[in-house]
Design a protein around this nucleic acid. Structure first.
Lengths: 95, 95
DNA sequence: TAAATATTTAGACATTCGTTTAAATATTTA
DNA sequence: TAAATATTTAAACGAATGTCTAAATATTTA
């Protein structure tokens, strides 16, 4: 919980998540999107992984990153209480 | 956007938000819930207000805090892209 | 096996963050 | 108007965060 919110807190990490909506990518391709060193991006990817927001799969010398449902569900679940408070339509999550 | 995510990032601030689901409260009542100085809580309330997650209304010598829809809608909107990616049911927000 | 490529780990450093105590402001009550 | 109550503002400080460069690890290619 704590680490997931922390992971979402940084703007670069949020941009990485949005970028991955377009599909899985390796670390190098992700890093190309940002004017920031590769080690910095690597660190951000690590935090997103810790927050269960992305998955990492090693494919040869590359590491492919993709969005991970579980972190998003955690946050989504936390927000449900407020969603109800404001009378948004009940979400009825399909798992 | 940035300030709203930042506001949500801290565990004490998230607890304050959850506490306010139970209804509006003045600063003193909120502070009582936490083993932390009043100035700290005051600071957290300020950040939540900046993030449009709570509203502050002065009532005599008290300040009444309550949940603010707009900050939650901002975050909810940001998550919609992922919600769709994971094929959650479409939220159809009622404004 | 040596060189090249992909990515991470380690260490350093400035900035931001959360907390505290003390002081200031605003409102109500005696 | 003076004292009490509610809350914030200010200043200080240690801890956490994000970034960088340099070095290490792993894999592929020549």
């Amino acid at each position: 919980m704590e680490i997931t919110f922390k992971a979402i807190n940084d703007p670069t990490r949020r941009e990485i998540l949005v970028f991955l909506i377009g599909g899985a990518q390796n670390a190098g391709e992700i890093a190309k999107q940002f004017s920031m060193s590769k080690p910095s991006i690597s660190h951000h990817l690590d935090l997103l992984k810790q927050g269960n927001l992305i998955l990492a799969e090693k494919k040869g010398q590359y590491i492919i990153y993709s969005l991970n449902r579980s972190g998003f569900e955690l946050v989504h679940g936390w927000f449900q209480g407020f969603t109800q408070y404001f009378e948004f339509p009940k979400p009825k999550i399909r798992l």
